[in-house]
Design a protein around this nucleic acid. Structure first.
Length: 314
DNA sequence: TTGCAAATAT
DNA sequence: TATATTTGCA
């Protein structure tokens, strides 16, 4: 969190730009490999017929650092709480402008008319791929929330646990996508998300009931045991007590905490965690955030998150 | 609106 | 390759 504070407080307009951006918890400068150093020695490169890296001067390194800093600043200057698609759109437009200039500088007629996003993927060294992937058509139009393609939801064990709790609460009979979605009270979660997950979950429970055993892809489901109320077909999750009255299992209200975490050291090929802002109360808008924000449930467990996957050519 | 299977996307 | 999403149909 110290890093986070330092990063947030960093302001190039006022302070000493040569100041180290963060110090706490990070290796001392002496422990770091200089970026000017070539990682593959010339002899090794020639031995394996690897085309030698273009040597990096301090100027190159400084330029790259400044680019990184300015983009980080841009990210952090956004009000994370009020982050919305318009912000992202502006961000993307800005980036697109920058990239257009770059592409003009490196004029290549053969590329004329091709998709800039594909171009970028080929051209970028990879470190930009993850954030560039945010600026695709999924986010380009915020005029209609319905036409927005949501990032892929990752059903983490915690999110699945919440799902199970709600399904157990409702009982097998009442556990339909819409109701589950409402009771889960997870902002941004759609009926389709739930329907899809429910579909898979039912297949899993079916497999379990037929003593087939879990399949290799049932990792998530096996991590959370199937509640007894879901094993009895057709019975509601509401338990009948000795008086014959219905006793409703308590369903913990959803009170998430936002735990901001700077997205540092993300490399290409890795999935970028773009969590959805889970809210208390009725679902409101769907907020995309640039930085890694882990969702926690009331017991401190991380919840699910959305991630756009950096697309890779197949 | 729901459930399901298959196709598609990431 | 795994798995989430979409699609089409009943």
């Amino acid at each position: 969190m110290d890093e986070e504070l330092k990063l947030t407080e960093y302001d190039s307009s006022g302070g000493n730009e040569d100041r180290v951006l963060w110090e706490v918890g990070l290796p001392a400068p002496d422990d770091l490999t200089p970026l000017t150093l070539q990682l593959i020695p010339a002899e090794l490169a020639s031995a394996f017929r690897i085309s030698p890296e273009s040597s990096k001067t301090m100027n190159d390194v400084n330029r790259a650092s400044l680019n990184t800093f300015s983009s980080l600043q841009r990210w952090h200057s956004q009000d994370m709480a009020s982050m919305n698609n318009s912000n992202l759109k502006l961000f993307c437009e800005e980036r697109t402008r920058e990239e257009t200039v770059t592409e003009k500088d490196e004029t290549d007629l053969a590329r004329e008319g091709s998709d800039p996003r594909k171009l970028r993927r080929v051209e970028s060294g990879g470190t930009e791929e993850a954030d560039s992937s945010l600026c695709n058509e999924n986010y380009a139009d915020d005029s209609s929330a319905k036409t927005l393609k949501r990032p892929r939801l990752v059903w983490t064990p915690q999110l699945h646990k919440r799902f199970i709790e709600v399904v157990a609460h409702l009982g097998i009979k009442n556990a339909v996508p819409k109701t589950i979605m409402q009771l889960m009270n997870v902002e941004g979660l759609t009926r389709e998300n739930v329907a899809s997950h429910l579909q898979k979950y039912r297949l899993y429970t079916k497999r379990m009931q037929s003593n087939e055993g879990p399949s290799s892809s049932d990792h998530l489901f096996t991590s959370t045991p199937v509640p007894p109320s879901l094993r009895e077909s057709g019975e509601s999750g509401h338990l009948r007590n000795t008086n014959g009255h219905m006793a409703t299992p308590t369903l913990m209200p959803y009170q998430p905490q936002m735990v901001p975490m700077p997205m540092m050291g993300m490399t290409n090929g890795g999935h970028v965690g773009i969590p959805v802002g889970y809210g208390v109360g009725p679902p409101v808008g769907f907020h995309y955030q640039y930085n890694m924000v882990q969702q926690r449930d009331w017991s401190g467990n991380n919840f699910g998150y959305y991630h756009p996957v950096a697309s890779n050519d197949k």
